[in-house]
Amino acid sequence: MPKVLTIEDDAVTAREIVAELRSRGNEVDWVDNGRVGLERAVGGGYDAITLDRMLPELDGLALVTALRHAGVQTPVLMISALSDVDERVRGLRAGGDDYLTKPFAPDEMAARIEVLLRRRQPAARETVLRVADLELDLIERSARRGDLALELLPIEFRLLEFLVRNSGQVLTRTMIFEAVWGYHFDPGTNVIDVHIGRLRKKVDPPGLVPLIRTVRGSGYRLAETE
């Protein structure tokens, strides 16, 4: 069972985080103080951490910086009411692995934690990724679906690689946008839906079992079965 540490001084937010993560089968500990959170993070053997940006005694940036200096590489999802791009960059540069702004949907937070937990699983460096009969060669930057070579634009390859690396996982539009395009998601844009639509035509042509699936109200998932 994955073990997650939640460092959050707002009790209402903390309860939402803890309840959502526990409902998905995680063991979750909660502390409401930055200094105590650092002590627990260093010695607790956690698989992932949710970290509030603004905390008493030791703020989130200082905490994650200290964590990395101590050699602790536990994946950290930073959560903050500060939504500007510069703040997000500071959080990631300090050592955070992902950044989520408040207010947030609990399932969005949990989806991000699940992605971080998957990254933590040890694996040999892969040069070829496969899901069903879909194959991506990361060196040649080429893709095939069975015997069919897929002609992908660079952005389409990056998008498909992100889906394949996280196959089976529901990926929200925000997660996809930030991972593939690299900057803050504008909920008013349909750029992801447009690119997913184009990618579907290439990856899931008529006659083949569809791999790219829409999860209504949440995002997308690449999987062999429903």
Rank of each mutant, 00 (worst) to 15 (best):
G91N: 08
S83W: 07
A111L: 12
D98R: 04
G96P: 09
E87W: 12
S83V: 11
D86Y: 07
L116Y: 05
E108Y: 04
D86P: 04
E108V: 12
V89E: 14
A94H: 07
V85I: 14
E87N: 14
P106F: 12
A105I: 15
D84K: 01
L100N: 01
P106Y: 12
G95W: 01
L100P: 00
R90E: 15
D107A: 15
M109K: 05
I113W: 02
D97P: 00
I113C: 00
D107T: 13
L92D: 07
Y99G: 02
A94K: 03
L116N: 04
P103E: 11
A110F: 05
D97Y: 04
E108G: 05
D84T: 05
I113Y: 03
E87Y: 14
G96D: 09
A111H: 11
V89F: 10
T101I: 10
F104E: 06
D98K: 01
A110K: 01
A110E: 10
R93F: 06
R93H: 08
G91Q: 07
D97G: 01
G96A: 15
V85C: 09
G96V: 09
L100T: 05
F104P: 06
E114R: 10
V85Y: 09
R93Y: 09
R90T: 10
D107G: 11
A110H: 01
D84Y: 03
L82E: 15
K102N: 04
K102P: 05
K102R: 03
M109L: 15
L116I: 06
D97C: 02
A94G: 02
A110T: 11
D97K: 02
A110Q: 03
L100S: 04
T101S: 06
D97T: 07
G95S: 03
L116V: 06
L100I: 08
P103K: 06
D84Q: 06
G95Y: 03
Y99W: 12
V85M: 15
K102T: 07
L92Q: 06
R112A: 02
F104N: 08
V89L: 14
